[in-house]
Amino acid sequence: MLTQSLANFLYVMNMGKMLLATLLCLLPSIQADTVITIKNNPIQPQNTRSPQYQMVHMKGELNKDTFSLFKNLNGLEIERCAIHDLYPDAFKHTPLEILDVHDNIEFPTITSGTFQHLKKLKVFRFTFNPYTDIEEGAFVHLENLDVLVISHQDLKNVTKTFLAGLERLRELSLTFNGIQSVDRDAFEHMKDLTAVYLGHNSIKTIAPGTFKNQRKLEDLQLQDNRLGNEDNYYYVDWRGFDRIPTLRSLNIAGNHFRYINVQDLMTAFPTLESVNFLPNNLTCSSELYITKTLRHYKIQIEYYGNDHSNCKNFDSVRILAEVLDY
Rank of each mutant, 00 (worst) to 15 (best):
L24N: 04
L27N: 12
L27W: 09
P28I: 01
S29P: 07
S29K: 04
S29I: 01
Q31Y: 08
Q31K: 13
A32Y: 07
A32G: 15
D33S: 14
D33Q: 14
D33R: 14
T34C: 12
V35C: 11
T37K: 15
T37W: 09
I38E: 06
K39D: 15
K39W: 12
K39F: 14
N40Q: 14
P42Y: 04
I43D: 03
I43L: 12
Q44W: 00
P45A: 07
Q46A: 12
Q46G: 15
N47A: 04
T48N: 14
R49M: 10
S50I: 02
S50K: 07
Y53K: 03
Q54A: 13
Q54S: 15
Q54Y: 10
H57P: 03
H57G: 11
M58V: 15
M58W: 08
E61N: 14
E61I: 15
L62K: 03
N63R: 08
K64Q: 15
K64C: 13
F67T: 05
F67V: 01
F67L: 03
F67I: 03
S68K: 11
F70A: 00
F70P: 01
K71W: 11
L73Y: 13
N74Y: 15
N74G: 05
G75L: 11
L76T: 00
L76G: 02
E77F: 04
I78T: 06
E79C: 03
R80E: 10
R80V: 02
C81V: 04
A82K: 08
H84D: 14
H84V: 13
L86G: 00
L86Q: 02
Y87C: 08
P88D: 06
P88C: 09
D89W: 00
A90S: 14
P95L: 10
L96D: 07
I98F: 12
D100S: 12
D100E: 11
D100G: 02
D100Y: 11
H102R: 10
D103Y: 00
D103N: 12
N104M: 03
I105A: 00
I105W: 02
E106A: 11
F107M: 09
T111Y: 06
S112L: 08
G113N: 12
T114M: 01
H117N: 10
K119V: 11
K120L: 11
K120G: 05
L121Y: 04
V123L: 10
R125P: 00
F126C: 05
F126A: 02
F126W: 04
T127W: 06
N129L: 03
N129E: 03
P130A: 00
P130R: 00
T132M: 05
T132L: 05
T132W: 05
D133H: 10
D133F: 10
I134C: 05
I134F: 04
E135G: 00
E135I: 02
G137I: 03
G137S: 06
A138H: 06
A138G: 06
A138T: 07
F139L: 06
V140L: 11
V140T: 13
L142V: 08
E143C: 10
N144A: 13
N144K: 14
N144H: 13
N144F: 09
L145P: 11
L145M: 12
L145G: 11
V147R: 07
V147A: 06
I150C: 05
S151G: 13
D154Q: 14
L155V: 15
K156F: 10
N157P: 02
V158N: 06
T159L: 07
T159F: 09
T161K: 15
T161P: 01
